Amino acid sequence: MTAANRLAALENLDAATLCSRAETALSALVEVMNRETTFLRAGHMREATALTGEKTQLAQDYVGIARAIQRVSDRLKAEAPDRVERLRRGHEALATQMAENLRVLATARSVTEAVLSDVAKSVGATTAPKTYAAPGQPQRQAPEGIQGLSINRAL
């Protein structure tokens, strides 16, 4: 089934069914984003990353339903104004959750970069000699095996 066919099928649903599907998708998306944010705050990156597939699928589902709702919004407002208002408030809650999620992701990325940069500097730093050679110059040491660390900044 093409995206256009899925959108048309959603648009043809009665107001109660379409709003119900939107509420279910919205609730599930907010819940998974909340779990991800909680994991990120606690420093559990692997657990947060494990939610990526589920979050992506839920977001795609919600966007598809939201598009259908936008296209038939006049009909929905006439047939189910209370449900439409509830969806609007739910969408605002999603926006708030997304903003918080993005703040936590940015913080996690910043902390990760800082830690990796510090490690790279420490690993790449040469140890300066603490004594002098005969002519009064610092002794030179042979280069060590580790000369630096490569960092992939993609999070």
Rank of each mutant, 00 (worst) to 15 (best):
87 L>S: 05
95 A>W: 10
123 V>P: 04
103 R>L: 08
99 A>K: 13
143 P>Q: 02
101 N>D: 00
106 A>R: 10
122 S>K: 12
3 A>D: 07
79 E>G: 04
71 R>G: 02
62 Y>V: 03
131 T>W: 11
49 T>D: 15
44 H>Q: 14
98 M>G: 04
95 A>Y: 08
126 T>K: 15
115 V>T: 11
152 N>I: 05
139 Q>Y: 02
53 G>V: 08
147 Q>L: 07
34 N>W: 11
148 G>C: 05
58 L>S: 03
148 G>W: 07
126 T>E: 15
46 R>P: 01
69 I>Q: 04
30 V>Q: 10
94 L>V: 06
113 E>P: 03
11 E>D: 05
63 V>H: 10
78 A>L: 10
46 R>D: 10
18 L>C: 12
133 A>D: 06
139 Q>F: 06
74 D>K: 07
21 R>K: 15
93 A>D: 13
45 M>F: 13
154 A>K: 09
149 L>H: 04
102 L>Q: 09
122 S>W: 13
143 P>C: 01
47 E>A: 13
112 T>E: 06
27 S>A: 14
82 D>P: 00
28 A>T: 11
47 E>M: 13
79 E>D: 09
52 T>Q: 15
20 S>A: 15
112 T>R: 09
142 A>P: 01
92 E>G: 00
36 E>G: 11
139 Q>C: 10
13 L>P: 04
52 T>K: 15
65 I>Y: 02
134 A>W: 09
29 L>D: 10
118 D>S: 10
52 T>A: 15
4 A>S: 05
155 L>D: 00
45 M>S: 11
129 P>E: 11
135 P>V: 04
128 A>S: 12
34 N>H: 15
54 E>K: 12
60 Q>M: 07
114 A>G: 06
32 V>Q: 08
115 V>M: 11
76 L>M: 10
102 L>R: 13
110 S>A: 12
98 M>L: 13
54 E>A: 13
42 A>D: 13
130 K>G: 07
45 M>H: 09
19 C>E: 08
120 A>N: 08
20 S>H: 14
81 P>C: 01
133 A>G: 12
23 E>K: 13
42 A>R: 15
90 G>N: 04
78 A>C: 04
44 H>W: 07
92 E>M: 06
130 K>V: 12
31 E>Q: 15
136 G>V: 05
52 T>R: 15
4 A>L: 05
7 L>E: 02
134 A>F: 10
139 Q>K: 09
55 K>D: 03
30 V>A: 12
35 R>F: 12
120 A>P: 08
125 A>F: 08
148 G>R: 10
40 L>T: 03
142 A>I: 05
134 A>C: 01
80 A>W: 05
105 L>F: 01
87 L>A: 04
10 L>R: 06
19 C>R: 03
145 G>T: 02
11 E>T: 05
72 V>I: 07
2 T>C: 03
44 H>A: 13
132 Y>E: 06
1 M>P: 01
104 V>Q: 11
154 A>F: 07
62 Y>G: 04
64 G>P: 10
59 A>P: 00
116 L>A: 14
99 A>W: 05
121 K>V: 04
65 I>A: 04
56 T>A: 14
1 M>I: 02
15 A>C: 07
141 Q>R: 09
30 V>D: 08
89 R>E: 12
147 Q>C: 02
